[in-house]
Amino acid sequence: MDIALEAVQLGKRYGRRWALQGCSFRLPAGGIVGLVGPNGAGKSTLLHLAVGLLRPDAGDVRVFGRSPYDDPAVLPDIGFVAQDTPLYRDFTAAELVQLGGRMNARWDAALARERLGQLGIPPKLPVGKLSGGQRAQVALALALAKRPRLLLLDEPVASLDPLARREFLQSLMGSVTDSGTTVLLSSHLIADLERACDHLLVLRASRVRLAGAVDDLVATHRQLVGPRHDGEPIAGVGAVVRARHTERQSTLLARVDGVVDPDWTVHDVTLEDVILAYLGDGETDTTRTDWEVPA
């Protein structure tokens, strides 16, 4: 199996604060990988490390086996659309396509023009006058025209309305099918990830909490309802991710690895259930004592 992106104990520090720490994962080539986590979890830092804009302070990150920071030869294989979809706002879309051809060795101008034409993007209007959805589509078309093997997208649909968001994701999925490009898509919108992604990476408090194929993650987690649980082992349960309790009953979201104790009622879960359980596991970068006023 080809590995598109790999991190081994990856870390990045700003001053004394670790924005990313002990981050390890391997993402297979092909398909769309969802990157999810709360604000400040390290998602943008991870993407900037993966595209070579930042140097790691610990560990290593590799794109198709090469360091994006130390080996410029891998950069043509990487496409990147930053969170605010930065474009030269006084340039028209046609001018940006022409500019891309002067800056990229294997530029596919015909692909960009065809995509933008299909989407009805006006070629001669400055992109600063386009809608947010149109600008996002221009940024995606330019990134795809680079013919990257790995495409990194940092919250590309966060500011779009539902219709523009759906059109963007449909366009993205069609492009991946046609080109075989691997996509790492950062988003807070779990419903979009469930619809578009076949692999998932969850960050919380600067660390990887969960990684794997979406189907496998959903298949190996269940909601259990049963007698009050005080931490004792449960047959068939590998780990309890989240627990809610009443005086006599507990509701658990758990990773299962066998036949569950019949004292527990077992329910299927959605991808959203799994993601929210790992995001809400209680660990944060700060604690209540950080806000206490000295006596």
Rank of each mutant, 00 (worst) to 15 (best):
R165Q: 03
L150W: 11
G174S: 06
L152E: 04
L152N: 05
A158I: 02
L172Q: 13
R147Y: 10
R147S: 09
L169H: 14
L151N: 08
L151M: 07
R147F: 05
L172A: 04
A164E: 08
P156Y: 12
A164C: 06
R166W: 15
D161V: 00
R165C: 06
L152V: 02
P156S: 03
A164H: 04
K146S: 07
L150V: 00
M173I: 13
L169P: 01
G174P: 03
L150I: 02
E155R: 00
D154E: 06
R147Q: 06
L160R: 00
E167L: 13
P148Y: 14
R149H: 08
R165F: 11
A158H: 06
P156R: 03
K146Y: 06
M173C: 13
P148M: 13
V176Y: 09
G174N: 07
L169Q: 07
L152W: 10
R166D: 07
S171T: 13
V176M: 06
S171V: 09
L172V: 04
D154T: 05
D161K: 04
L152T: 04
L150G: 06
S159N: 10
R166A: 11
L172H: 07
L169F: 12
E155G: 01
L163W: 13
K146P: 00
A158E: 15
F168I: 02
L150H: 11
T177D: 10
P156W: 12
D154A: 04
S175L: 12
L150M: 05
R165A: 03
R165L: 04
R166V: 07
S171M: 15
M173Q: 10
D161H: 03
P162W: 08
P162C: 05
T177V: 09
L151A: 05
R147V: 08
G174R: 10
F168T: 00
L172W: 09
E155H: 04
M173T: 15
L169T: 01
L160D: 03
P148Q: 15
S175N: 12
A158W: 09
L153I: 13
L151K: 06
P148V: 11
P156K: 01
E155Y: 03
D154H: 03
E155T: 01
D154R: 02
R149A: 08
L160F: 03
L169M: 09
V176E: 07
F168P: 04
D161G: 05
S175M: 10
S175P: 01
K146H: 14
A164P: 14
V157T: 11
R165T: 01
Q170E: 14
D161T: 00
R166I: 05
V157M: 13
D154N: 02
A164M: 08
K146A: 11
G174M: 05
G174V: 00
S159L: 09
P148L: 15
L150N: 09
T177I: 06
T177A: 14
R165P: 08
R147N: 10
A158N: 12
L163N: 10
